[in-house]
Simulated scan of single mutants.
Amino acid sequence: MKIAVLVSVGRHPVSGAARYSRNDAAALTMALDLARAQNATVDVLHAGDPSNPALNDYLALGARSVEVLDLSATPGARNDTQNDAAGPLAARLAGYDLILTGTRAEGAFDTGMLPYRVAAALGMPLVGAAVDLSVHDARAQVRQFMPKGLRRRVEVNLPALIAVHPLANVAPKYAYARLREGTVRAVATASAGSPDDHAWSLRPATAKPVRLAAAEKRSGHARMLSATTTESRGGSVVIEGSSVEKAQVILAYLREHQLVDY
């Protein structure tokens, strides 16, 4: 059985530094465990920049090598847009029995559509939000993550593409010795591009504003009563006065509830 794992470059939530994607790391660990049980081979693929140092992290997580489809040399590509990776990946993945990938990348505004586009191009079924996986008799048994702690088991015929949930039942293990032994191989390829490329541009992601909220000081019984009645929850409406006086009222409220420290 031939297994492929699609990996992407993640981003640290605080520093923004490039690193391995936690979703794809879970998919890689799941694929390696399955390969040992099925005596299968695992190929790790990435579409993007082969010089990104974050790809070495996947070597430390167990990949013997990472094959990078270099899309930067695509003729006529714009510098401010990403080349379409779905087409080259689908062409490279033809003939695989099982493809695993994370649910979505960690670039803040990623759509999570790449697994669906690759599966559609290959004409194979897709199972999303997988938390564990087993293969028997050319069929994959997948346990899916569902809202509110629920789980669902589904079966799918191989070949198939499985998108792994971040809460998958795996524990990636990082080893520096494996990083030194593995290799990252760049393969030149071309992307046909998309007719909608001109409508997209790349820029650094910005943090969303955090809404200030005063800490709830009422008892649980009082909160339950307020949820079933229309009584006022306090506060005041300032209509009269100058803008300075209104600003002073707001500042006093923020200081009272310790939402500002000045």
Rank of each mutant, 00 (worst) to 15 (best):
K2Y: 00
V7A: 00
G10R: 05
R11H: 08
H12N: 08
P13Y: 09
V14K: 00
V14R: 02
N23F: 03
A26I: 05
L28W: 02
L28A: 04
A31D: 03
R36Y: 01
A37E: 11
Q38R: 01
Q38H: 07
V44A: 03
G48I: 01
N52V: 11
A54E: 02
Y58A: 00
L61C: 05
L61Y: 07
L61R: 07
A63M: 00
R64V: 12
V66M: 03
V68P: 07
V68S: 05
R78F: 03
T81P: 09
Q82V: 10
A86Q: 07
L89F: 02
A91S: 04
R92N: 06
T103W: 00
E106V: 07
T111I: 10
G112H: 12
Y116M: 14
V118E: 06
A121D: 10
A121W: 07
L122R: 00
G123E: 08
G123H: 02
P125L: 06
V127Q: 09
A129M: 13
A130E: 04
V135I: 01
H136P: 05
D137H: 03
A138W: 03
A140K: 09
V142S: 07
Q144F: 11
M146A: 15
M146T: 15
N157F: 04
L158W: 11
I162C: 01
V164Y: 05
V164E: 06
P166R: 06
A168H: 09
V170G: 02
A175Y: 14
A177N: 11
R178L: 14
T183F: 06
V184C: 10
V187E: 15
A188D: 12
A188P: 06
S191M: 12
S191G: 05
A192I: 06
A192E: 00
G193N: 05
L202C: 11
P204C: 15
A205M: 15
A207D: 15
K208F: 10
R211I: 14
L212Y: 02
A215G: 02
K217S: 08
R223G: 13
L225T: 14
L225F: 13
S226P: 09
S226I: 13
A227T: 09
R233E: 13
S236L: 04
E240K: 07
G241A: 09
E245D: 10
E245L: 10
A247C: 12
A247P: 12
Q248L: 15
I250Q: 05
Y253R: 00
L259T: 15
V260L: 01
Y262K: 01
